[in-house]
Design a protein around this nucleic acid. Structure first.
Length: 322
DNA sequence: ACCTGTCAAGTCTGG
DNA sequence: CCAGACTTGACAGGT
């Protein structure tokens, strides 16, 4: 049984390599000439794309094949200020070279629209804004030539609005309204406050959508659910998908700030999870969500090699001994 | 060069 | 009904 490690958006190893350069609305409006402001956005977006390719090259060198794109590649992408700008046509070459590199090397790439993107709100306006953001994410994949639906978008269920059952029903109804180019990419994750792993598993089974288990969120919000029992069912939602099941993993910052992410991954907690996961007898990928990003990955990797319970294939891939 | 307040966005709680 | 927390990295303004 094998597993791979990945990290989110940003490497600490490369100098001056942010893929998330931004321009604020205030800064945009402050420039007297809208054309000049748009030029600035274009320059930042181009830089973000170039840096993303640099990061992917670095990942290849380190055998890191699991990576999450930042949602901020194109600043203000869904804002009316840049409405009408064809960023995917304008930066076609940059997008396509990223996509080709991803396909050539068979990277597992994902993206995670931020927590303002919600499918079950009570207001139509919030739903429509969320749709715009999902459309942007799908456009980014399409501009990269990643038209295969194996490249996913991770979402949470959303708000509670005082009634979990009704909010879940609204989620499902709204999900069915999505165009295929979006819905086929969506995978759902349990959150740290409202929707537990069992809640999300039910929704995923009803909709036929893969589920990402976030182990840390489960530790924050679990309603006494047993992970060992749930895990085989969670992994089963990935049957028929191109990639193996995916898990998010992070360690709590402290007892007091339990929900916050720590700088690195606690080895013992990780080994505990591996023990449970090994019983499913399936290969899987782990997205590490730590402040130290790829630094945390390389550190955990070293510690796993020393721990002896797993065999290292390379920096980011391991085989579990039975 | 460094420090701090601010930033597009939504939800929830407490006053 | 409104202000502030939540949470995040990066920008922008001030020193």
């Amino acid at each position: 049984m094998r597993f791979r490690l990945g990290y989110v958006a940003m490497t600490l190893k490369l100098v001056d390599c942010s893929p998330s350069g931004t321009m604020t609305v205030t800064a945009f409006k402050k420039l007297p000439d809208p054309e000049a402001a748009l030029n600035r956005v274009r320059r930042i977006a181009k830089k973000n794309l170039e840096n993303t390719l640099r990061i992917l090259r670095y990942n290849l060198a380190y055998n890191i094949y699991v990576y999450r794109l930042t949602s901020k590649l194109v600043p203000l992408a869904t804002h009316p200020l840049i409405e009408g700008w064809d960023y995917s046509g304008d930066l076609k070459e940059e997008f396509l070279s990223i996509g080709s590199f991803i396909k050539e090397n068979d990277f597992r790439i994902s993206a995670h629209p931020d927590h303002y993107t919600i499918l079950n709100p009570e207001s139509d306006q919030v739903f429509n804004e969320s749709l715009k953001d999902l459309d942007y994410h799908a456009k980014v994949y399409e501009a990269m030539g990643l038209t295969d639906y194996r490249y996913k978008l991770v979402l949470h269920i959303g708000g509670l609005y005082g009634n979990k059952k009704a909010s879940i029903e609204r989620f499902k109804r709204n999900f069915e309204k999505l165009p295929e180019r979006i819905s086929k990419r969506i995978i759902l994750e349990n959150d740290d406050k409202v929707y537990t792993a069992a809640d999300v598993l039910d929704i995923c089974n009803d909709l036929g959508v893969p589920m990402v288990l976030d182990v840390h969120h489960h530790n924050c919000n679990n309603n006494y659910e047993n992970l060992e029992e749930l895990l085989p069912h969670i992994f089963k939602t990935w049957d028929g998908q191109h990639f193996n099941p995916k898990v998010h993993f992070s360690s709590p910052k402290s007892t007091k700030e339990f929900r916050h992410h720590a700088d690195n991954i606690e080895l013992q907690e990780f080994l505990n999870f591996l023990r449970i996961a090994s019983k499913t007898d399936r290969d899987f990928d782990v997205m590490l969500e730590a402040k130290n990003k790829d630094g945390a990955l390389l550190k955990l990797s070293d510690e796993l090699k020393d721990a002896g319970t797993v065999k290292s294939i390379n920096q980011a891939e391991f085989e579990l001994k039975k």
